[in-house]
């Protein structure tokens, strides 16, 4: 079995007095889209932030492509080819769409072919290129946040609840975009509450509860097994379609 691109081994993270991650073991295979599901407060966001070094794990190992990144600075982790889209999108609202993209392309001017590909994925960004990002609608902001993450070829995208609060039509657009990203063989770890989206785009899945991974497997397997959904997530697919 090939080594995963990202591996978490027994990761514990404390935030103040709270013990959030309590021994997370997670493998993210290269080239696929891994869903990270779980109830509110299960520790999904903390897992992503711990991987990015925004909160340092107090115990355990985070290994990216053979390199131990636990305890490294966030900028150094990002320079290894990881990109992070936080739940609040982390856009610079006073900067234009263009300026947000320029900053994200750290290695220099953006490649035109890549920019064209991004505009194909998210046409709204081209239209509002010179507008402050803070003026965009919720869906457009989310698209910009993802576009910023893919402004350069990345080895791993960490994306936290991109569909939160978005209209169904925008969710559809994002699903299309994720399917396109998958075709480009970008590895993605996606935190999501929208089960229908998870089923549409996910290859593999990890389910969290109380700061631990309680289930891993193929996404299709979880999508077809309502009893498992009920047990792990407390939902049935029917109610979320």
């Amino acid at each position: 079995m090939p080594e995963p691109l990202l591996r978490l081994e027994g990761v514990h993270t404390h935030i103040g007095q709270y013990h959030i991650l309590q021994g997370v073991d997670l493998d993210v295979p290269a080239g696929g889209l891994t869903m990270l599901l779980g109830r509110n407060g299960a520790g999904k966001t903390t897992t992503l932030r711990s991987i990015m070094g925004l909160w340092n794990p107090s115990q355990g190992r985070v290994v990216f492509d053979g390199t131990e990144i636990g305890g490294m600075g966030t900028a150094d982790i990002a320079r290894l080819g990881l990109a992070y889209v936080p739940e609040n999108m982390g856009l610079f609202g006073n900067l234009t769409v263009q300026e947000n993209m320029v900053l994200a392309a750290r290695k220099g001017p953006m490649d035109n072919a890549r920019l064209d590909w991004i505009f194909e994925l998210f046409p709204a960004l081209k239209k509002f290129w010179r507008l402050p990002a803070g003026n965009l609608s919720g869906g457009q902001k989310q698209m910009l946040a993802i576009a910023r993450a893919i402004s350069e070829p990345r080895r791993l995208l960490l994306i936290d609840e991109p569909t939160k609060g978005l209209a169904p039509s925008i969710v559809e657009a994002l699903i299309e975009a994720f399917l396109d990203l998958k075709r480009s063989e970008t590895t993605i770890l996606l935190v999501e509450q929208n089960f229908r989206m998870a089923c549409a785009v996910g290859d593999s899945v990890a389910v969290m509860d109380d700061g631990q991974i309680v289930h891993t497997g193929a996404m299709s397997e979880l999508a077809e097994n309502e009893a498992l959904q009920q047990r792990l997530l407390g939902l049935s697919l029917d109610t979320h379609q």
Binding site: A75, A78, G93
Partner: peptide, 16 residues
Amino acid sequence: RAGVENGEMVEALGYR
């Protein structure tokens, strides 16, 4: 300007 708004995100983009 970006750092004034959100220093954490600047760091996450790979800038020290």
